[in-house]
Computed example of a mutant assay.
Amino acid sequence: MWLQETYLRAYHFAAHAHQGQIYPGTQIAYIMHLSFVSMEVIAALHAEPHHDGELAVQCALLHDVIEDTPVGYAEIAANFGAAVSDGVLALTKDATLPANQQMADSLRRIQTQPHAVWLVKLADRISNLQAPPAHWTPEKVLRYRDEAEMIYTALATASPFLAQRLRAKIDAYGQVA
C-alpha cells in the first residue's frame, strides 16, 4: 500500500532537487525518468501487493537525488526518514570507487535493504534499457547489457513481475547490440 500524498511529497522534493537537469541524450526533463521508474514500481506493487509500497514509491522518486544533486543523505533522512534515506543511499553509486566496481558495490548494499528497495533498481534499469545513445560504441552497449544481467541476477528474486520485464528488456537490448 502507498499513499498519493506520500508520492506527491516525494515527487515535489525530487522535482526541486533535479530542477534544470535533463535526461542524458534527450531534451526531456529529468523528472520524467523518475516518473517512469515510479510507474514501473507502482505496476509491480499492483501485481505484488506484499511489498512496502510507501518505501518503494519514495525510493523510486528519490533514487538519484544523492547521486545527481547537492542534496545529501541527512536532508533525505530529515524529510523522509531513515528507511527511505538508507534505501536511496544503497541505490547511489559510490563515486570514490573505480567505475568498474561501482555497480557490484551498489548491488551488495541494495541486497541488505528490504525488497521494496530492490524493486527500484530493477525498475530503474527497465526504464534505462531504451535504445542506446547513437554515440555509444558497440562495446559500451554490451557492457551496459552485461550490467543489466548483473542486476537481474542479483535482484530478480525480489519481484517476479519486474524480473520478467527486465528479462524482456535485456533480451531486446541484446538485439540492438
Results as ranks from 00 to 15, higher is better:
103 M>P: 07
111 Q>E: 14
130 Q>A: 13
15 A>H: 08
122 L>E: 01
139 E>A: 15
95 A>H: 15
121 K>C: 12
61 L>P: 01
157 T>W: 08
158 A>M: 07
51 H>A: 05
171 D>W: 09
50 H>E: 15
47 A>M: 11
95 A>N: 14
51 H>L: 07
74 A>W: 04
80 F>N: 01
41 V>Q: 02
43 A>F: 07
61 L>H: 01
53 G>D: 01
28 I>Q: 12
86 D>A: 15
150 M>P: 07
71 V>L: 02
34 L>G: 01
129 L>Y: 02
56 A>P: 04
148 A>Q: 05
69 T>P: 02
64 D>E: 03
102 Q>L: 12
17 A>S: 05
114 P>W: 01
47 A>W: 04
118 W>H: 15
148 A>P: 07
67 E>P: 04
132 P>A: 08
81 G>M: 06
32 M>N: 13
37 V>K: 00
4 Q>K: 13
150 M>W: 08
11 Y>I: 06
90 A>G: 05
11 Y>L: 14
22 I>C: 14
36 F>G: 11
109 R>Q: 12
103 M>E: 15
126 I>L: 10
77 A>N: 13
23 Y>M: 13
30 Y>L: 07
157 T>G: 13
18 H>K: 06
60 A>Q: 01
56 A>N: 03
154 A>M: 11
101 Q>W: 07
80 F>K: 03
8 L>Y: 11
56 A>I: 06
